[in-house]
Nucleic acid binder design. Structure first.
Length: 901
RNA sequence: GGGCGAAUAACUCAGCCGGUUAGAGUGCCUGCCUUACACGCAGGAUGUCGGGGGUUCGAGUCCCUCUUCGCCCA
């Protein structure tokens, strides 16, 4: 793996072979008995049919960074991958394929259809995993699971049976969210609410005795066909006298009562509402309280059913809505139509308007599971990042509702319930199910062959379980549960959960409940909810909007490292990541540029290390130059910063610190300083090589979690480690600041200040880059003198100085005053425009005078001096001294130039 | 309707426990093909820190309020 570096950085040629090398050597495979403290991240399993999108790119990069960081710190780090069978999504994909041939799943039949889905999954299921590999994901692939694997399916059944035994699973008729296109129930979380402009229709219902009308308001007129009552608030004076009387539903000629119920909002509409128990959750509750019938007026595909008068039957719900309105209008009973904004629920998979529908479904009673999960948060055992997400979690837990877990799909874990009856497959959903046989219902871990009561034939429930009913178990089902495996002991509970906030309730909250219920322990202690990838209009990236970014394309163009760095550095805790899908070049510029820079730093440095480098420890400290001591100090500062930020999930700050160290400190300053020693035009080459190799090694390690490919490529070519070692298993750097380096930072900063001052003056007066200048340093502070003593040669070279002398300059020159009052003067002779120079110095002096006055007032303020901490006061005093000195120095320079006041 | 978040340079964003002459990347301007890198080097310009009020010796940072935008829940 150590061919010479190509002159041009080409991520394509290094990344794929490197990943293969990591995989072949099984570097990220973790066994239960591996040494180290456990660190476990469960990968949120992508849908098995998914292809990588920008959101995946973000979340999986973060997870990989954290895993690689902890692995280098010596942890037994496991990032556990898998894929999700994704019931509705996958079934929809295959149904669409069938539709191309004019077929539906019903044409194939259940078994053939499911087999077809399996075949599809086998063909395409590894796509996203391959894409993850291109991203550089260091997961333990040997553990990859699929939620429909036999082992995980066994866990699903075990959980269903256990919950049933505890009385936490029940079957019941409730209003559920029904998708008339997918023909299945949806959980509350699977329904997306969307505010839209709609109408609020006011209809008049005649009172039975002909004494008048009562007017109701509704947003869904078609449901009038299922009306069984009118409800008003019991304290509503307007309607009090009418309670208990009957009204006639005009277009149905149905007589219904007026009832009083607390849930009616007297301020909404007319204060009187129609009650349709079969098509509205609130109405259902009212119906129960008042013993009202529930008339289901819709078929599964949202057409009007036989329960309605013949002229409505078979109409689409929205056609029926118009028809109902028209009929009221004809009868003169349409009071008015108001504009009304209301939230309509839509299927999160196909965007069809969801129909609240009365149906037989399986539910999990959630309150008993939620209580300990809420307690875990209250006790501080769960940490949310950002912190405020915890409140979201708590609110949801406090108001938890039962979970509808049955889905009328074919792709998924079939519900482990068997009915002893004569009814054959076909008309088996909910209310149409007839009970024959002995009526026994069996809930079983195994697949029973006959009724355990009468020995009769059994029929399994047709429905499958909600996809999340398997994914809420993965923190332990992926480790062998319900068996007590060594893996389970070694890797449960995990450590960190990293995911998008939108699946906090879908998945994260439920995993916590499942973990407590079945393992007796929360499954992870930290939940990092990162932001969302959005376009420049802050819209979520989505297929339908066509505003997505394809990470694979980005990787092909700029490399995974560039993608990863851009994503990590652009994302801080609690904020979204905005990228421009129309301009990938610009969006990924920072990562692209940095990867290239790093490559070239490596090319340069490694080119000078071919004959090896001595370990730093073997170098005589007295041979270290100021620059050496400075870069070593900076390296140690960077270690501390990067480590702390990574620990606090501030990955952007950590990456930024290393970026600055590599680019600004190492490349712009240290490598420039060290060149003569490397070239051999100055002595001290061994020391220079040792220091350079040492700090570069540190920087590569610090950067490795974010940019695994470039860092590995360069690191392997560094001397002083085993030839077949991988940086991904190298130790995370530890800061051990050498005492000899004390003060190196301030001293070298003075070197930088002197060089910069000369460069500024050169630029200001347009001195040709090739031309050397003379420089005099006046009023040199001790600091400046030390800097010149230590790095005079560097100053001369980097600022292109012919002669550098201490003392007062003679003749006209251009001057810069440093923070400590040191005057840097370039005598430029006739090049200097005296008026301009006087004005420039004057402007700077004036600006400083302002600062000085403000600072004097501050320090004269009794309140400040008595109340501010001593350290702050000391700092402010130093500032005042510095500003005064500078101002004085500038004025002095003006006098010497003979500037007019 | 309830809850939460955001508003800082032209753009995308940092700024952590209140004390910096308010930073980075990109873009822009000037000059450089200095044999690691033009995906580069050197220098530069640009800010009522959304408005108003308050707390404090001191506010981009804390509190209140208004405006605008976004998210979640009903």
């Amino acid at each position: 793996m150590t061919e010479p570096l190509a002159p041009q950085f080409d991520p394509q040629t290094i990344e794929a072979p490197l990943y293969q090398w990591w995989t072949e050597r099984e570097l990220y495979r973790v066994s239960a008995d591996a040494p180290g403290e456990r660190y476990v991240i469960q990968m949120p399993p992508p849908n098995v049919t998914a292809v990588l999108h920008a959101g995946h790119g973000l979340t999986y990069t973060i997870q990989d960074v954290l895993t690689r960081f902890e692995r280098m710190r010596g942890a037994k780090a496991l990032w556990l991958p898998g894929t999700d069978h994704a019931g509705i999504a996958t079934q929809n994909v295959v149904e669409k394929l069938l539709a191309k041939n004019g077929q539906t799943r019903f044409d194939l039949g259940r078994d053939a259809f499911v087999e077809q889905v399996w075949q599809f999954v086998r063909e395409t299921g590894s796509t996203i995993l391959d894409q993850l590999k291109a991203l550089g994901a260091s997961c333990d692939w040997s553990r990859t699971y699929f939620t429909l694997d036999p082992a995980l399916s066994r866990a699903v059944r075990e959980v269903f049976v256990r919950l049933h035994e505890k009385g936490l699973i029940y079957r019941g008729k409730y209003i559920i969210n029904w998708c008339p296109r997918c023909l299945t129930a949806l959980s509350n979380e699977e329904v997306e609410k969307e505010e839209r402009d709609g109408s609020l229709w006011h209809f008049k219902y005649p009172i039975e005795d002909g004494s008048g009308f009562i007017t109701i308001a509704t947003t869904r007129p078609e449901t009038i066909l299922g009306d069984v009552a009118i409800a008003v608030h019991p304290t509503d004076e307007r309607y009090r006298a009418l309670i208990g009387r009957n009204v006639r539903v005009p277009i149905l000629d149905r007589l219904i009562p007026i009832v009083a119920d607390d849930v009616v909002d007297a301020t909404f509409g007319t204060g009187a509402v129609k009650v349709t128990p079969a098509h509205d959750a609130t109405d259902f509750e009212i119906g129960r309280r008042h013993n009202l019938a529930a008339i289901d007026i819709m078929t599964d595909d949202a057409k009007i059913s036989d329960a309605a008068p013949e002229r409505f039957r078979g109409l689409d719900r929205f056609v029926a809505r118009k028809r109902v309105v028209a009929e009221f209008d004809q009868l003169g009973l349409l009071d008015k139509i108001e504009k009304h904004r209301n939230a309509v629920g839509r299927c999160y998979r196909c965007d069809t308007v969801v129909e609240p529908k009365l149906s037989d479904q399986w539910f999990v009673k959630m309150a008993p599971l939620a209580a300990p999960a809420l307690q875990a948060y209250r006790d501080g055992r769960l940490t949310f990042i950002p912190e405020h997400q915890g409140d979201n979690y708590a609110t949801w837990m406090e108001n938890i509702r039962d979970w509808c877990i049955s889905r009328q799909l074919w792709w998924g874990h079939r519900i482990p319930v068997w009915y002893c009856n004569q009814d054959q497959a076909g008309e088996t959903r909910g209310e149409k199910r007839q009970t024959g046989g002995c009526g026994n219902i069996m809930v079983s871990r195994d697949t029973p062959t006959q009724c355990d009561k009468c020995g009769g034939a059994l029929r399994q429930d047709d429905d499958v379980l909600d996809t999340w009913f398997s994914s809420w178990l993965v923190t332990f089902s992926s480790l062998g549960w319900p068996d007590k495996t060594p893996d389970l002991a070694a890797f449960y509970p995990g450590t960190t959960m990293v995911t998008a906030p939108e699946i906090l309730f879908f998945w994260v909250a439920r995993m916590i409940m499942a973990g407590i219920e079945f393992m007796g322990e929360i499954p992870f202690s930290t939940i990092y909810l990162h932001g969302t990838v959005r376009d420049t209009q802050h819209r979520k990236m989505s297929k339908s909007l066509g505003n997505g970014i394809d990470p694979v394309e980005v990787i092909n163009r700029y490399g995974a490292d560039a993608l990863r760095y851009t994503v990590v550095s652009g994302m801080s805790v609690g904020t979204d990541l905005i990228l421009d899908p129309a301009d990938l070049d610009t969006s990924f510029a920072s990562g692209r540029h940095f990867a290239n820079k790093l490559w070239n730093i490596g090319r340069f440095l490694l080119g000078h290390l071919e004959s090896g480098a001595a370990p730093l420890a073997s170098i005589d400290p007295s041979t270290l130059t100021l620059a050496d001591r400075w870069i070593l100090s900076r390296a140690h500062e960077t270690i501390v910063t990067a480590t702390q930020h990574n620990e606090r999930f501030r990955l952007n700050e950590a990456a930024g610190a290393v970026y600055h160290f590599l680019w600004s400190d190492l490349a712009d300053w240290y490598l420039e300083q060290v060149k003569p020693r490397l070239y051999g035009t100055q002595p001290g080459g061994d020391t220079a090589r040792a220091v350079a190799a040492h700090v570069f090694d540190i920087a590569l390690r610090l950067l490795h979690p974010v940019m695994p490919f470039v860092t590995e490529t360069l690191w392997q070519r560094l001397p002083n480690h085993a030839p077949d070692a991988s940086i991904s298993l190298a130790a995370w750097p530890v800061s051990t600041e050498a005492p000899t380096n004390a003060g190196a930072i301030t001293d070298f900063e003075s070197v930088q200040a002197i060089i910069t001052a000369v460069r500024v003056l050169r630029a200001e007066y347009g001195v040709a880059p090739g031309l050397s200048v003379n420089v005099t340093v006046g009023d040199a502070s001790k600091l400046a003198q030390r800097a010149i003593d230590a790095e005079g040669e560097t100053i001369r070279r980097l600022a292109k100085i012919e002669s550098l002398s201490l003392g007062v300059s003679s003749g006209p020159g251009a001057t810069k005053v440093l923070d400590d009052g040191t005057k840097i003067t370039v005598p430029l002779g006739e090049l200097v425009d005296m008026d301009k120079e006087c004005a420039r110095l004057g402007a700077e002096a004036t600006k400083l005078d302002g600062l000085v006055v403000a600072q004097e007032n501050k320090l004269a303020n009794e309140q400040f001096v008595s109340r501010a901490p001593p350290a702050v006061i000391e700092k402010e005093r130093e500032k005042l001294v510095s500003w005064r000195t500078q101002a004085e120095s500038l004025r002095e320079q003006r006098r010497s130039l003979g500037c007019a006041d």
